[in-house]
Amino acid sequence: MSNIRVPTALRAYTEGQIEVPTKATTVGGALQELADRYPGLAPHLFGSEGQLRPYVNLFVNDQDVRTLAGVQTPLAEGDKLMILPSVAGG
């Protein structure tokens, strides 16, 4: 089991959950599981054709998945997947 860490800005869509456990074995699988569980979140993560929006920043244990295997990056027991928004405000 690994955990998806949800940023403050998205917690309105996850019933306030900060961490959501997942059994998925890849980053993409975990995001799909999250979107299935919280359908209101799906359009923020995925485009109309189901592709992950390119500006969604994803980190596994502090490493940007763009430097790993993208959505194919494997998730192991105890891993933390973070979804990070862009910096807002001034």
């Binding site: 993560l45 929006r53 500006y55 969604v56 928004p85 862009s86 807002a88 405000g89």
Partner: peptide
Amino acid sequence: SPLNGLEGLKH
């Protein structure tokens, strides 16, 4: 969206 790539702007 709260998840966006528009740095500096707030939703």
